[in-house]
């Protein structure tokens, strides 16, 4: 898993039917200091995150397992909203 910041949403009406009901959020992967780690990606949302929140997202097929429809064709899924991070 990785941490990311939710920066936007995606609206798509013509899409794979298994993505119906899945909220698609644009997320920017970040490290614990808030520095960007790679380009923004789109992830399905499983915990009701909002724009501006720091979240945890799972990659590959595990990302879809957190969604209401585990068969959704999704390779990134938001699985937790981060309250705080501590690093040495």
């Amino acid at each position: 898993m990785n941490s990311a910041k939710v920066i936007g949403t995606v609206v798509a009406t013509r899409k794979d039917e298994r993505l119906n009901g899945v909220r698609l959020m644009v997320i920017q992967p970040i490290d614990s200091k808030g520095n960007a780690q790679g380009p923004p990606v789109v992830a399905g949302d499983a915990v009701g995150s909002g724009i501006g929140e720091t979240v945890i997202y799972a990659k590959s097929k595990e990302g879809a397992f957190g969604l209401p429809n585990p068969e959704a064709c999704c390779d990134a899924g938001i699985t937790a909203i981060i309250d705080s991070m501590y690093t040495i």
């Binding site: 614990s32 499983a46 909203i81 309250d83 690093t87």
Partner: peptide
């Protein structure tokens, strides 16, 4: 392990586990 994460609103499979950075 360089840190840990505190999260209350999370997927139920994460309950009972420490989230480590």
């Amino acid at each position: 392990v360089v840190g840990n994460v505190v999260s209350t609103q999370k997927h139920e499979d994460y309950r009972g586990h420490k989230l480590l950075i």
